[in-house]
Amino acid sequence: MGSDAFTVLLVEDELADAALFQEMLADVSPEITVEHVEHGGEALQYLLGKAPYAGRPRPNLVVLDLNMPVMDGHEFLREVKAHEHLRALPVLVLSTSDHPTDVQRSYLGFASGYVVKPGTYAEYTRVLTAVESYWRGVLRLPTIGELVGEERP
């Protein structure tokens, strides 16, 4: 939908799920760049620009799995939202869990949205089309400069 550069940071420990997400998103919107890390600890290092992620593009959106080793999605939300310059970064939870406790904890942890992973290819395509349309078409996101405090109103 949008024509500007758009980067998604996918935080997903299941490599098959990550590959499927990337493949399907490329079908929906091939110009979106997807950066992939396998757990919340790596995602935090990525967002803070620490090695080996120094110089990588700042994401416009984080797509976060909840159930991961090392640092799970709830821990990641707590950590990322504690950093003032990362707090406004949108985080969309994409999880197999439809448990009300996971949904509630995610929103209480300041997740920007919660989507249950679809069970079929057609449903997944529909969800990714809606996500792409919303995050790149309908929604007004802050610029990278606004997020890091470089641009003031």
Rank of each mutant, 00 (worst) to 15 (best):
M1Y: 04
S3Q: 11
T7C: 10
T7P: 04
V8W: 00
L10D: 01
D13L: 11
E14I: 07
A16C: 04
D17N: 08
Q22D: 10
V34R: 00
E35Q: 12
G40V: 04
E42W: 01
A43G: 06
Q45K: 10
L48P: 02
G49I: 13
K50Y: 09
G55D: 15
R58Y: 15
P59L: 12
N60G: 14
V63I: 15
L64P: 00
L64F: 04
D65H: 08
M68H: 12
V70Y: 13
D72P: 02
H74W: 05
H74F: 08
R78V: 14
E79D: 11
E84W: 08
E84R: 09
R87W: 04
T96K: 04
T96V: 10
S97W: 03
D102S: 05
V103C: 00
R105G: 03
Y107Q: 02
V115W: 07
K117M: 12
T120H: 13
T120F: 13
Y124R: 06
T125Y: 05
R126L: 14
V127D: 02
Y134K: 12
R136T: 15
G137F: 08
G137D: 13
L141G: 02
P142A: 06
E146P: 11
V148R: 02
E151V: 13
R152Q: 07
P153V: 13
